[in-house]
Structures are given as C-alpha cells and as structure tokens.
Design a protein around this nucleic acid. Structure first.
Lengths: 168, 168
DNA sequence: ACAGATTTTCAATAATTTTTGAAAATTTTA
DNA sequence: TAAAATTTTCAAAAATTATTGAAAATCTGT
C-alpha cells in the first residue's frame, strides 16, 4: 500500500464510518481530507480531490464549521478562503461529544423529564412498565451527562490515566 | 399529557433518536414499543400499534434480535411467536456499545493498523501529517477499546460509583 | 400427508436524503 | 463604482434507503 492509496483508503473509511454515526458520507470525507492535509485547502482543492460539486463542498464545509470541526483560514495576499481541521484526535472526539450531547442528549432528556410526570392508573401493568422505563432512562441520562461533562472538561492525559488505573 | 400520549411520544422520540445513531427509524420504534410493553407482543400487535407492514416488522425484529436487543418468547399453548425487549436501560446501553464496538470500531482499527505501516517520503509534509493522524487515531482507539471493555464488563453500580467519584 | 396458520422473502414502489449546477449574492481589487 | 473573482443558495435530478404486500416457505396439529 502506497501513501497515496492509504490516504484514499482513510478518506473512504472515515466516510463510511460517518454514515454509521448519523453524519453524511461526504461531510465525513471532507473532514478526513482536511485532517490529513498539512496545509489549509480551498473549496476548489476539495472539489478536485473528492470529485464533488462546488455546492456540495460549500454546504458540507458550512456544516463542519458549525460542528466546530473545521475553521476558515485567511491567508495574507490570497483571495480565496482556506479551510483547516483540528488534527488532535482527542480534541476532535471531545468536540463531537460536546455537540452531540447538546443536539441529542439534552433535548431528549428534557422530553423524558416531562414524560416522567404523567399521571396514570398504576394498576395498569403497561403504565407501570412505561414509568419504570422512563425513570430508568432519566437516571441513566443524568449519569451519562455527568460523565460526558467530565470527559469533555478534562484533558486527555488526566482523563485516560485516571480512568485507566481502574482497569488494573 | 396522558399516558397514551406519553407512550406515543416516547416511541416517536426514540425513533428519531435512532436516525442520529445510524439505526433506522422503524427499528428504533419497534424497540421502543417493546421496551414499554409489559407483555411480549406478536408481529400483528406491532403492525397494529405502529401502523407498518408485516414484512417491515419481520425484518426489523430480525435485526433487533441480531443486535441482541430483542428476544423471541415461546408462550405455551400459543401458536404465534412473541417478542420482548430488555428493559434495564444499562443493559440495553452496554449491549449496544458491545455490538457497535464489534461492528465499527474493531474493523476500523484493523484498517488503521495497516495504514500505520505504510512507507513514505518523510520529507513530504502531507505524508508526515497523515502518519501522525493515523498514529493518533491508533493510540486513541486502543484507549477507547480498553474503556469500552471496562464499561461493558462492569455492572452499573460498580462502574458509575467508581467513575463518579472522580468528579468530586 | 394435508390443511390451516404463521413467518419469511424479495421485487416493485415509495419516501427520503444527497448531489448537482447554474443563477444570485457577496466580496475584492483597481 | 464597475467588473472580476469567489461564495452561497436552492430547485431539480440522482442516488440511496425504507416499506409494502403478495407469493413462497415453513411450521403445527390431526
């Protein structure tokens, strides 16, 4: 495997991974390309390297910026905009966790809290099971929230060394 | 909000959540329905409650069984098959984590390991950045693997109480 | 072994999501 | 301020994914 092949493979694998995580393939590929590029790239660079249209690049770049995974870079004397991605994988992971917590976990837990308050006939077995399930999710969600907060606030070395001690 | 409305809401929310996690909406809804049902349900029950076709129920149930989230139940004297889902949310979460690790993380790390071995011109900045990124992912993946293993093996109380102490 | 009940399969269809590309908007230079 | 360069938008087209439903397969009791 040559480096060029490996780079291609990486972009394609990272893209496939994205689809398993609710992120569209192209967005993940653009992200992959920027992660393994030493220098910032323009929209045209990305279009050329991934063989996709300008509109597609533009939309996915915007979304990546929104996720806090990609930054616009101004290069003095250049007219075009350049883009770059964070390369420290720990930072990438914590950023994704932070965003997903905000976008998915938080709204879900708000709904669960509301549902936990419904009144119902406690002799009905289905009602009982429903309330138990909701309650379980509520408790679980609170713990998950604490843990993700801890994970995101801490730096890599602190977190890993502390938690990994538990394994021994 | 009545219990009936809340149950509806839960099914719909859980389904929407599924799409963010690479699981199809209907599969997540079937799972939600089974989680909040006191008694096992038949394919016909699920068809009726979610308003979906027999083939759809059948396929999604099969997939849920494959994920280890739903079990077939034999009821003595009944001809039809019944289905039930684990209701302990901790067990549900660890089961999902275990499966996703197997299906996604493990194959990805195998590829990353291969890529980390490519030879290339180390004076090329892109090659250097590529290898650094791959290496970072490799280390990160190994840690994540350890942590997920720990999480899945441990029971809820042990894990949460141990890790949550870190917060204080 | 047969008939009725139930489950499974899968080609066709429907719904959803992604991508394109050209027009509009914006920005920059002179 | 005008024109060239660049970015953004978005309706239409393409691609992908999910769903249906009826036929085939399987199972169960007699």
């Amino acid at each position: 495997m040559t480096v060029t092949e490996a780079r291609q493979q990486f972009i394609s694998t990272w893209g496939a991974m994205g689809t398993h995580w609710g992120i569209n393939r192209t967005m993940a590929q653009v992200h992959a390309l920027l992660m393994i590029s030493a220098n910032p790239l323009t929209q045209d660079d990305i279009m050329a390297q991934l063989n996709i249209s300008r509109g597609n690049v533009n939309m996915n770049i915007r979304e990546l910026i929104d996720w806090g995974l990609v930054d616009r870079v101004i290069i003095a004397g250049e007219r075009k905009e350049y883009f770059t991605a964070e390369k420290d994988i720990w930072k990438v992971a914590t950023q994704i966790i932070k965003e997903r917590k905000k976008r998915e976990l938080d709204p879900m837990m708000k709904l669960i809290d509301q549902m936990s308050k419904v009144e119902g006939d406690k002799n009905d077995k289905d009602v009982k099971v429903f309330l138990d399930t909701i309650n379980g999710i509520q408790k679980f969600g609170a713990h998950a929230d604490d843990m993700l907060g801890l994970l995101v606030k801490s730096d890599e070395n602190w977190f890993l060394s502390t938690v990994l001690k538990l394994i021994k």
